[in-house]
Write a protein that binds this DNA or RNA. Structure first.
Lengths: 150, 150
DNA sequence: GGAAGATAGTATCATTCGAAACCAATAGGG
DNA sequence: CCCTATTGGTTTCGAATGATACTATCTTCC
């Protein structure tokens, strides 16, 4: 289909970036349209839903998002009354995040939709191929991190 | 290693985005440091090197970059004397791009380095796995485009 | 052949993103 | 205990990005 220059076309970092951008775009426009959530916001919600009382710092390490990004997403969610921040007696610099009732309701709404969107793109592939693909993604991630810090 | 929340962790769009970002980051800092090239600039150079006399529009379709991005990258490269724009007698709105001598020299320099960087990350994987991975990326790309426009 | 769209490319603007500066609080030696 | 170094989080700022508007040319169709 795409009659590209040879080098770029088979250049893995390039292909990875193109594919990732297209997928992100599809997903993010869907989230935005349906729930008014940006991708960082959706990620924060997902993590907090699964680990009640997590701190922003922990969200950063777990999602590899920048702390600025997490901060902004969290503030927006607090503003919208979807997340609560309780004082953390163990360390008063941070707060413990939790979903509010509204947040839980939204999450119950969003989460199946997310799965559904994913399915819309990926369900046409056999499960074992997807598994191999994911394994590969993780391996590449680890390797790139290694190379980046050498 | 990363003890993430279940949903996000196995969510393909998320994994794809994380991996792509890390790889892009490694690659782009290397380009920037070695040649003062941004990723869009490197892409434009690569395409023009392989297809002399291409137009910006053609670069857009071939690389899926935005036309604004291509315009900026091209202007920067023209400024640096790496690319020439000859009038296009067939359509005077566009110009025909070609590498200058300096551009060719730079490309001769950059291109093996690019391959080398790629190798540094990916050569640890068996070739057939990489092939499957690339095939999968393309298939996902096609599928996502389909879904996006449905 | 000329008016009405489409298209190549550039300029403008608003948004996003992350690096670095910053503030508050904690940790850890002396 | 302080004094310094670190860390959690926010603010600020500059760079990159992409949607939109704009200009010049081309195409179409009457």
């Amino acid at each position: 289909m795409s009659e590209t220059g040879l080098i770029l076309d088979r250049f893995i970092p390039y292909r990875l970036s193109v594919t990732s951008n297209i997928v992100s775009d599809v997903i993010s426009t869907a989230y935005e349209a349906l729930f008014g959530l940006s991708i960082p916001e959706w990620r924060v919600i997902a993590v907090v839903a699964e680990q009640d009382g997590i701190t922003q710092q922990a969200i950063c390490t777990v999602t590899r998002m920048d702390k600025v990004t997490v901060s902004r997403a969290t503030l927006a969610l607090v503003d919208r009354g979807l997340i609560d921040r309780a004082p953390n007696s163990a360390d008063r610099r941070s707060r413990l995040l939790a979903l509010t009732d509204a947040g839980r309701r939204l999450y119950a709404d969003v989460s199946p939709k997310a799965i559904e969107f994913e399915a819309r793109i990926f369900s046409s592939f056999p499960a074992d191929e997807l598994d191999r693909f994911m394994t590969m993604l993780r391996a590449i991630e680890d390797r790139a991190l290694e190379v980046g810090t050498l």
